[in-house]
Structure formats: C-alpha cells, structure tokens
C-alpha cells in the first residue's frame, strides 16, 4: 500500500490518475481504517487529503451560506457556535456519528463518500439542500448531496474524483432543521432509521420544507411527498399524519441484523413526526 500526502487537490487528482489498483482517499479515516483492518478493502494507494490547505476550515460565504472543509471533524463542527445556531440539524447528525473518539476524526465528507444508507450526517445535509464541490481530472463540478450516494458503499463520483468542499445554503430567517435517528442503545450504534427535516416559516405556516430519510432505502432519500405534506400547514395533527404517511410510503427498508421492514416503517413515521416538531420549534425560535 502506498501512502501519499498531497498539498493540493490538483496533486491529489494527479496521484489518483496514475495509481494502480484500488485507491482510497483519507479525510477522517474512520471508515477506511475499519475496512482495512477487517480485510474488506486493502487499498493499493491511500491519498491523505488532510494536509491540503483549507480543508480544516469552516468559512462563512458572502451570501450567508457556509463552506465546510472536507477534513473538518465532527468535534470541530460541534464547537462552531454560529454554524450550530443556524444548522443545528446538520451538526447534530454529524455529532451522532460514533463515539467521542470517532468525533475527533470523522468528517462530513467521509461519511458522505462512504456511501452508507445509514450515514447519520447525510440526511441533515440533504434536508438542508447542501451541495458539494467535486474536483477531478475533468475539472470541477457542483452536485447536490442527494446525488452523491448511489447504493450501499457506492457513490456517483467518477474514478479519480474527490469531494473538495461542502456547501450549506444561507439559512435565512425563520428557518429550522433537525435530525433524529433510532438506535437500540443510546450511543455507538448505526442508525436503524434516520430522519432530517429542514423548513422555513411564513408566520406560523410552513413555507418551504425538505424531508430526508436514512437507513430505509439503498441510499439516503429526499422525500418530496413528505415535504409537500408539510408545506402550507402549521404542523397541525392532520399535517403530521400526512407527513407520516408520505414518509412511510417512501421508505423501502430491508430486514437485517439492525431491524425489520415493519419496524423500520413504523419508526420512520415516529421519527418524521418528532423531527418535524423540533424543526418547527427551532424555526419559530422556541427551541435550540
């Protein structure tokens, strides 16, 4: 296995372009090392992106949005007060990944590129309308986060392409987001179901909404029907029921060691309602 520490994304792309066999990029490394140790994937080339200038930065953009470097750890994200105040759902999703120790290393970019349908940070990003800059041999492109995952362990990135930054749109006024997941224990588990909702209000009424679900399909899904059930409502009981029905209908889970189809569908409805209430309260400024 060859280990590289490029100083620029251009160099990283060049190394990847000439590498033989299996190439992996190291942002936080928490997934790559587990796969290496378990003998699931032993890369021939490992490209460590953490030394590229700027990858540890969280930058406020002119339009009020944010750019988050690919090597920003969960712990660093959680300590950024302004980001937490605007996008608590995005941050709480990332902060649920693994233990305190894992938070010291794990990154949004790594969690996204690992391609797990149960990745805790991805629904929050999808609900937020986050995008990523992708650099590669054929230049740079921007993709919506929901267009990155393809299936368990696979993404729509082309060979040699690297996620170079994550962008959150401006939060604007009267907005709120939230992420909840269900796990059997209190910590350390992979999500059995995850749900993120971001919404904005016009008075008491929901003006815009995005609903994302994790661990109930081969990839994290954006559920337009669930969002539609919220828009124009004050999150009354009828709206919550419609949200639950839409979310449950969109869920296409499997039975595995972490949960059954029936359980995952039931919990999808429960989490959708609970998440929506938190996001709504946050948008109204009634909750942190």
């Amino acid at each position: 296995m060859h280990y590289h520490k490029p100083q620029t994304f251009e160099d990283a792309i060049k190394i990847a372009a000439t590498a033989q066999g299996v190439t992996r990029f190291l942002a936080g490394g928490t997934d790559v090392l587990v796969q290496l140790r378990a003998g699931i994937v032993t890369p021939d080339t490992l490209i460590d992106l953490k030394l590229i200038p700027g990858v540890r930065d969280i930058v406020r953009e002119a339009d009020g949005g944010w750019t988050i470097g690919i090597a920003v750890s969960g712990a660093e994200l959680g300590r950024h007060a302004a980001l937490v105040a605007e996008w608590p759902g995005v941050v709480e999703g990332m902060n649920l990944v693994g233990s305190t120790q894992v938070q010291g290393r794990a990154t949004l970019a790594g969690n996204l590129c690992n391609g797990s349908p149960a990745a805790d940070s991805v629904p929050g990003l999808v609900a937020a309308g986050a995008t990523v800059s992708v650099v590669g041999p054929n230049g740079t492109r921007k993709l919506a986060v929901e267009n990155i995952p393809a299936s368990p362990g696979r993404t729509h990135l082309q060979p040699g392409e690297i996620v170079a930054a994550i962008h959150l749109p401006p939060r604007g006024v009267n907005g709120g987001d939230a992420y909840l997941r269900f796990i059997p224990r209190t910590e350390m588990d992979i999500a059995v179901v995850g749900c993120a909702i971001s919404l904005t209000l016009d008075g008491d009424k929901i003006a815009t909404a995005r609903v994302a679900l994790g661990a109930v399909a081969p990839k994290v899904i954006l559920v337009a029907e669930a969002a539609a059930a919220l828009i124009g409502t004050t999150l009354d009981d009828h709206a919550v029921s419609a949200l639950q029905a839409a979310a449950t209908a969109a869920a296409q889970p499997i039975t595995d060691r972490r949960g059954t189809v029936e359980f995952r569908k039931d919990v999808t409805a429960v989490l959708a309602a609970r998440t929506a209430r938190i996001a709504y309260a946050r948008a109204k400024g009634e909750a942190k």
């Binding site: 280990y3 190291l26 490394g29 928490t30 090392l33 587990v34 140790r37 490992l46 750890s73 712990a75 233990s99 305190t100 120790q101 894992v102 010291g104 290393r105």
Partner: peptide, 11 residues
C-alpha cells in the same frame, strides 16, 4: 484530540 489509535494510521 481524543481518538481511537486503531483508527489512525501510524504514518
């Protein structure tokens, strides 16, 4: 920073 040293490469 607190980490699991099994999830950090020696290099």
């Amino acid at each position: 920073v607190l980490v699991c040293s099994c999830l950090v490469l020696g290099v």
